[in-house]
Simulated scan of single mutants.
Amino acid sequence: MFVHFLVSGVLGMLIGLCRPFNPDNSRLCARIYSVPALRILGLKLEMDAQGLMQHQRSCVIVANHQSNYDLFVLGSLVPERTVTIGKKSLKWVPLFGQIYWLAGNVLINRANAEQAKQAMLTTTDTLQHKDTSIWVFAEGTRNLGKGLLPFKKGAFQMAINAGVPIIPLCTSNYKNHMHLNRWRSGTVKVRSLAPIPTAGLSLDDMPALIERCRLQMQECIQSMDREIAAADDENLKARGGVRGQH
């Protein structure tokens, strides 16, 4: 993984330097990191995200955030012309930070309210006029596989201001179920939900919009977790094992 991370970093830097701030750089760099990493880590990814990948216009993608492994788990699902929002301090992380910046992602200084507000206005303009989507981890931080945290307002405010739909993207709880010392480290399910329209909504509608999105994602994540648990039980039975003995 260390060698892969270095090689991917060099390739990502070349892409960023050859076409700086191109909104499709994030997709290419994410795939470079993700596809080999899944094989190295032995993670099996089961995707049902055609609705996201086939979406043809700007949107706000809202995903749950478990750990730094999300880069590898979700990297192959980044659609064309999609950028993310991250902390401005990421820019100074050696190699990765410079790639992140050159990929055209939006960097926000959360400690400076005026700069954060200006960045949000910029993203609204991007959504409306530049045929580019925004990917946001709505919890604002990693939940470490302990279930969805409360959602921040930023993603929903952007979607309402721009009048673009929200596409929820759900990942099963893998953080506490990976076994990275095995050839098969576990299964991760990823599923995109139907777009939630925001046209005609105002900021007064934001609390209900946040609750609707969070509830749909929570139900989807719980459903995927049950599917994985059922499949694991079936595999144990097929091998003549008992879950509690392993």
Rank of each mutant, 00 (worst) to 15 (best):
G97K: 04
L102V: 10
F2C: 06
N176E: 13
A159K: 00
I166W: 06
S58I: 15
A238D: 03
T84Y: 06
V188P: 15
Q56G: 09
G200N: 12
H55K: 08
Q128F: 06
D204G: 08
V242W: 09
P36K: 01
K87A: 01
C213D: 10
C220E: 07
Q128V: 03
T132L: 08
S8L: 05
R226C: 11
H177V: 11
C18V: 11
G240P: 01
V7E: 01
L52M: 13
S34W: 02
G12D: 00
V10N: 01
A231M: 08
L71M: 14
N235W: 12
G145L: 09
A230N: 09
L74A: 10
K91A: 15
L45D: 05
E219P: 02
L203T: 02
P23E: 12
S133H: 09
H179T: 06
L41V: 03
A138P: 01
D24N: 14
D48K: 14
M206S: 05
A229Q: 15
L102S: 06
R19K: 15
T171M: 15
G9A: 13
L180N: 05
Q216R: 14
L52Q: 11
W183E: 08
A63W: 03
V35K: 14
K146N: 13
G163D: 04
S133A: 04
R226P: 07
M53A: 14
Q98M: 13
H179A: 12
M47I: 15
F156D: 00
F21Q: 06
L169K: 04
S133Y: 02
V73D: 10
M178F: 13
R214C: 11
Q245I: 13
N161V: 08
I85E: 04
M53P: 11
Q157A: 13
K91I: 14
R31H: 09
W101L: 10
A63T: 09
P20H: 01
L71W: 08
M158G: 00
V188F: 11
F21H: 12
Q118E: 08
Q54I: 03
I99V: 15
L77P: 05
Q118M: 10
V3C: 01
V78L: 05
D225E: 12
R19W: 09
P23Y: 04
I228F: 08
R110S: 04
S223Y: 02
G140P: 12
G241W: 13
M158L: 14
E80Y: 12
S202Y: 07
F96T: 07
C18Y: 12
I99R: 05
N64F: 05
L14H: 00
V7K: 00
F151I: 11
D225Y: 03
N109G: 08
A238F: 03
P195A: 04
T132C: 15
R182W: 14
Y174D: 13
Q118P: 14
T126K: 01
S58R: 03
L201G: 02
N25T: 09
D233L: 13
D125K: 09
L102H: 07
L6P: 11
R110M: 01
G12F: 02
L28P: 01
